[in-house]
Nucleic acid binder design. Structure first.
Lengths: 353, 353
DNA sequence: CTGTTAGCGCATTCAA
DNA sequence: TTGAATGCGCTAACAG
């Protein structure tokens, strides 16, 4: 039917500025100028070059350009996992914002593995990325690695923050959000509270748990906390054991501190025959669409992800393209407030409890 | 507290092979050889170079290397939207597979906008990407663009396929899956079926709708089809109108042909006071974790995303690194079967209907 | 307005 | 085993 010229064909080399120049009888400099929109070219020449380039299927080699200009126009994005709405939403906003300024994103997915994290940061250095958006998965963050390199690119820590106070950070106020969730539950009359959370090596985990415990503490209440993974199956199993007790002693309200945890908890509660919120209230974190589709819909605390993506982009752009003579300002820490969204999954405890 | 040296500092240049060479009193060639693990270097020299490089915080400039070697080690991934589990799951598998072979991913999110799609493909050409994984959002795919360029990189169409038969494709058998869903519902006794689907310019949409209609057709049944968007809110609204009729005429079973559609439909059904599956059965597509957490859990047809990612990676690798003298084989079309997963959201229709 | 030249950082000939 | 020299494709000086 048709020829598939992919792969191992005769390898006709891609045309270069030289080819274009030769074909049109002009110099490479003229071609370069015409293509990059320099004002120092006559309109006639410019059009001729444009046409000639298109004719030959010329595409500038941005590697060569970057090498010459010492600007790669690449921004690195290092995240644990694009499968989570929490990260996915933010990365798409980030991408849009940075592309408007001519940067391309190069993606690294670490799976929260510190080694992978390190590898990606190294790769980004090697690609001469001009900036890095980093969701750290250790308390050190990128600092130890970047410390040894002259003129490292600016880093914005996003969503989570490391403990090394060198990078700019853009995070949401998860602590306050979790406190509000606790208040919300306690106002309904709940007294036996529990939290299911991810690994406590992440700042978000610590903030969520800490805020929730604070909120309970203000009312003299204890909270049962279980750390584990940001994973549906882990939460599923953990909820089964947590709620196995009888109605007089088991928690009457549950905080699943992440959206993957919510789905796991919901599955377990359903299997245990416990009704939400009649038998147990459930509150979550983040706000994927399906929180509204669930029966009951899920009460949660939502960070302003879009806005955070924008702020992160702005912060990074400010470092990458300093306008005027900026007096080299210290780390910027943006803490954005989120929103408590009350839905059907939270309510008063059963009378018997 | 600490100095933030990010951004506009004195701009100490990053060390190059020359710097390393000079510092150690050897030639650049030796440094290059030592760092790239050439066998033609004495062990002593190699170690000396390694240490010296580390000392200076040297990181190879992969742009220069790529320029010289004419191998960028970049693979482009062009997807509509990383927020969907459908795409996110696949991209993380893809990434793992390609990285094992030394490729890095450069990401483009198109939002299903044909212009953005084109822009990314151009960018990838300019970055001399060695291969492209493309989720096309038009029937033409990448063919018209790549046609004008000498030695274009190999392209694998992923998840969806365009109508131009030049690229390799890796897709799941959505048509068969949808047919099975129809059979499943009809076996329960449903006779009034409806489909909510995304835009019909995507092959997946057409396959899902087509397969479902085929399945119904085999039993002499009509299906009400509504095309729209892969979007929670659209489905929410559409379901409200679709199910507004009385119990004798409205559909008794609904196929929401995408996971974002399922959450919208669930929300609407809940608001209408319709119980699933007692009043209406709902089946979906894809299989995000939360399908198991919902009450009721969602019956669906799931594509083997992980496997598809692997196959796509293999296919692309075969084109990028042809082993031996491969006789330039024509387009490969991989069609992978998925799995019908029966859960709680489907059941027999109410007696009255 | 256009052409000539040089060099970004690296890997690779070819000689020694 | 090592060094000197060349060029990947491009843009930025500097001339004309």
């Amino acid at each position: 039917m048709d020829t598939n010229d992919q792969g191992s064909s005769a390898a006709a080399p891609r045309p270069t500025v030289q080819d274009v120049a030769r074909a049109l009888g002009v110099s490479t400099a003229t071609v370069s100028r015409a293509l990059s929109g320099s004002p120092n070219v006559s309109t006639a020449t410019r059009e001729k070059v444009m046409r000639g380039a298109a004719q030959l299927g010329y595409q500038p080699n941005v590697l060569a350009r970057a090498l010459r200009q010492e600007r790669s126009s690449l921004v690195g994005l290092v995240v644990p996992d694009v499968r989570s709405d929490f990260f996915a939403a933010a990365s798409s906003v980030l991408q849009r914002a940075l592309e408007e300024h001519g940067f391309r994103l190069i993606l690294g997915i670490t799976g929260d593995d510190p080694d992978a994290d390190r590898d990606y940061l190294v790769t980004l250095l090697q690609h001469r990325a001009e900036g890095i958006v980093h969701v750290p998965c250790t308390d050190e963050g990128a600092a130890p690695l970047l410390g040894g390199v002259p003129t490292p690119p600016p880093v914005v820590e996003f969503l989570r923050q490391s403990r090394s106070n060198v990078a700019d950070t853009v995070v949401s106020n998860e602590r306050e959000g979790a406190r509000q969730l606790a208040e919300h539950l306690i106002a309904f009359g709940h007294r036996r509270l529990a939290v299911l959370a991810g690994p406590d090596r992440f700042s978000t985990t610590r903030d969520r748990v800490g805020g929730f415990v604070d909120g309970a503490d203000a009312h003299g209440l204890e909270v049962e906390v279980r750390y584990g993974l940001y994973d549906h199956d882990w939460t599923h199993r953990e909820t089964l054991t947590l709620m196995a007790g009888d109605a007089e002693t088991r928690p009457t309200a549950l905080f699943a501190a992440g959206n993957r945890l919510v789905s796991g908890a919901l599955q377990a509660l359903s299997e245990l025959g416990l009704r939400v919120p009649a038998d147990v209230s459930l509150v979550g974190a983040d706000d994927p669409d399906w929180f509204r589709g669930c029966t009951p819909s899920v009460t949660t605390f939502a960070a302003p992800l879009e806005q955070m993506g924008l702020v992160a982009a702005q912060t990074l752009l400010g470092r990458m393209r300093p306008k005027g003579r900026q007096p080299r300002v210290g780390p910027i820490h943006a803490l954005l407030g989120g929103q408590l969204i009350v839905r059907g999954s939270s309510g008063p405890p059963a009378a018997g409890a």
